[in-house]
């Protein structure tokens, strides 16, 4: 056994967890090596002290507080679902208004008579007619492929007071826009190597548009707040990550690759 091995196994030797064969080899080495013997002697008090550090229990109420944070994270999660919901909702609303308007325009020419005031719809009739349609039935063509996901989400029906749904949309949209995205991420890696290529692969995996790529800088377009969490986790697998405290003004993030 070399002196270097003694250093590597010293802590396990002192804890008594070294396999028997290795322990014998180490002891044999110590007999003829005063330097390693001194090392073990000096290390023992330190390791004994560290071994005495007991594992502390979780603080009281920790799991309740964590549960609340996870629930909050759950509520914030579906930005993608929100986006789909917003697209469906706004498309439905636009279609409803378009239909109502076309009925108003076309009806005088449909053969139900000349412009007879008695056949003109009342303003209230139009409002009532539009409310009879639920949003889901107003989905434009091409959205059928989202039906599976849509079935899992609560349907937004037009309420008697149509501003309720609009208020909900406004609140969601405001939350989306106000999500604080950092303007820059600093990624510290041992050697640059293929890091840039790997970042591009991550961006493509999460549908982030690559705006620019210089030697050690990559600029990405973020359209979904959840993308930043996924990006951070993936970057953490490549190296040490630090985010800038400044918020992004235009939903773009620049990743700076730094060699450690």
């Amino acid at each position: 056994m070399h002196c270097e091995h003694v250093k590597n196994w010293a802590d396990e030797y002192l804890r008594g967890t070294l396999p028997d064969e290795l322990e014998m080899e180490l002891k044999d080495h110590l007999v003829d090596c005063p330097s390693c013997t001194r090392y073990i002697t000096e290390l023992e008090p330190l390791l004994r002290l560290m071994a005495g550090l007991e594992e502390e229990p979780l603080p009281e109420g920790f799991e309740d507080r964590l549960h609340k944070r996870l629930m909050a994270a759950d509520r914030k999660k579906p930005a993608a679902a929100y986006k789909n919901k917003w697209i469906r909702w706004s498309a439905g609303l636009a279609a409803a208004f378009a239909l109502a308007f076309s009925i108003y325009i076309v009806q005088p020419w449909t053969g139900f008579g000349s412009r007879n005031e008695s056949s003109m719809p009342e303003a209230g009739d139009l409002a009532r007619d539009s409310r009879e349609y639920s949003i889901s039935s107003m989905e434009p063509e091409g959205s059928q492929r989202n039906n599976t996901a849509a079935e899992e989400e609560p349907e937004l029906k037009m309420s008697e007071n149509s501003t309720d749904a609009l208020d909900e949309y406004d609140a969601l949209h405001k939350e989306f826009l106000e999500a604080k995205l950092p303007s820059a991420i600093y990624l510290y890696v041992p050697g640059n190597g293929r890091t840039g290529d790997m970042i591009i692969e991550i961006a493509e995996e999460y549908d982030m548009k690559v705006l620019n790529r210089d030697k050690n800088e990559i600029a990405l377009q973020i359209t979904d707040p959840d993308q930043i969490d996924n990006l951070l986790e993936k970057l953490a697998e490549l190296g040490r990550v630090k985010t800038d405290d400044n918020a992004s003004q235009d939903n773009t993030i620049t990743i700076h690759v730094m060699e450690e």
């Binding site: 920790f62 507080r65 964590l66 996870l70 994270a73 999660k77 959840d226 996924n230 986790e233």
Partner: peptide, 15 residues
């Protein structure tokens, strides 16, 4: 430690 631990598990949950 508590704050960071919760942050860890929120990040784990999200990803």
């Amino acid at each position: 430690a508590e704050d960071l631990t919760q942050e860890v598990f929120v990040r784990v949950y999200k990803s």
